[in-house]
Design a protein around this nucleic acid. Sequence first.
DNA 1: AAGAAACGATACGGTTCGTTTCGTAACGAT
DNA 2: ATCGTTACGAAACGAACCGTATCGTTTCTT
Lengths: 213, 213
Amino acid sequence: MNEPDTPAPTETAPRRASIGARRNPAAETAILAAARGLLAEKGYAGFSIDEVARRAGAGKPTIYRWWPSKADLFIAVYAADKAAAIAVPDTGSLAADLAGYTAALWRFWRETPSGAAFRALLAEAQASEQAMTALREKFLPLRLADLGCVFTRAAGRGEIAAADAESLLQLYIGFHWVHLLTERIDEDAALIDRMARLIVRAGRPDTAAPPSR
Amino acid sequence: MNEPDTPAPTETAPRRASIGARRNPAAETAILAAARGLLAEKGYAGFSIDEVARRAGAGKPTIYRWWPSKADLFIAVYAADKAAAIAVPDTGSLAADLAGYTAALWRFWRETPSGAAFRALLAEAQASEQAMTALREKFLPLRLADLGCVFTRAAGRGEIAAADAESLLQLYIGFHWVHLLTERIDEDAALIDRMARLIVRAGRPDTAAPPSR
DNA sequence: AAGAAACGATACGGTTCGTTTCGTAACGAT
DNA sequence: ATCGTTACGAAACGAACCGTATCGTTTCTT
């Protein structure tokens, strides 16, 4: 076989090389983009590290050097989109805030690879202790912060009892998860509104007979 | 041994043979028991068809002949315990019913392989269209029926608005899922009670302005 | 008696994961 | 300027798994 010492610069094979004893940002970008695209295209089922490496023109060791597990790669894909993600609404009404946030979140899940990435992370966490740890300690606290402050604000306005904010948040998160995991995150505005109103009613402090001890 | 010409029963190799042109219940039992045990012992992570076959002393084709996919096997494991499963409470109070049901369900998930089986089914459904279909069309309707009638009865008593029963059920299911998928199904009675009371409050018809009826 | 069906064992092809080895290339310190 | 360190991509490896096929055997059905 012929060894071309100057590999013909095929437009698609620039043969990205090391740039020295440090990370090559081009490789990182290419890997994240490949993972994102693959996830968007094939979903979790068709996602594999080998295919990501192939598409990125990267070596698998390069991937594993930076993202020690599949879960870490999912989190990175999610985080990359999260910057331009959902604006936390502040309309002065909890029900409106919740409905707005949910609609935006579901759209985010539908229209970017992030929904697939999150589903993949949840699934991966069921099979890997490492992924479960990453989910609970690195991922969830960040995601819950957004919605958490919506509830905190509502408690400040007296819309809900402050003591219930945490529990109501959990209930609402569960609602999101069920719909994501059963592939029912279509934009059903009526459903979203109904759920938001239910949550508000559940939290109304005046309707509680005795204060929740 | 009942079988006269049974070969010397090596304790680990009875070499279960065909009993003719029909299912061998012994094989079915052995496979389900092996799947159950493996799931209980290793969880979803350590679960494989090969290992089930090994433990059951069965051939893989025998497994695939009856359970065409892993999801079907998970459902079967879950269903095997469901007989002795959770009694649907009927105390006359929705909050008490919910709290009781949840405590029983979580104990069921903790103390049998069913929790692991359900987690496995949810994870599997994220990667396999077939599993997702089985989850939505074969599994969920059955599971939701139990809790559904608790809410229906509460609506009949006037505890909650009938129109909200379905949505409240969804909220409560989400609460269960989040705790199962994040491995937090410890028996926190205070948490369970709080959630049950929130659900009841969310559904109380008198607290709503005057929406329905 | 003949055939159909189920059994366990075994092997196979195809994937995927995560690791290891290899030769190359660029930076940092001396 | 040189040498050591580090990152790079390619390739291969071992292990595990899935789902299917083949084979000889056993037993029921017809």
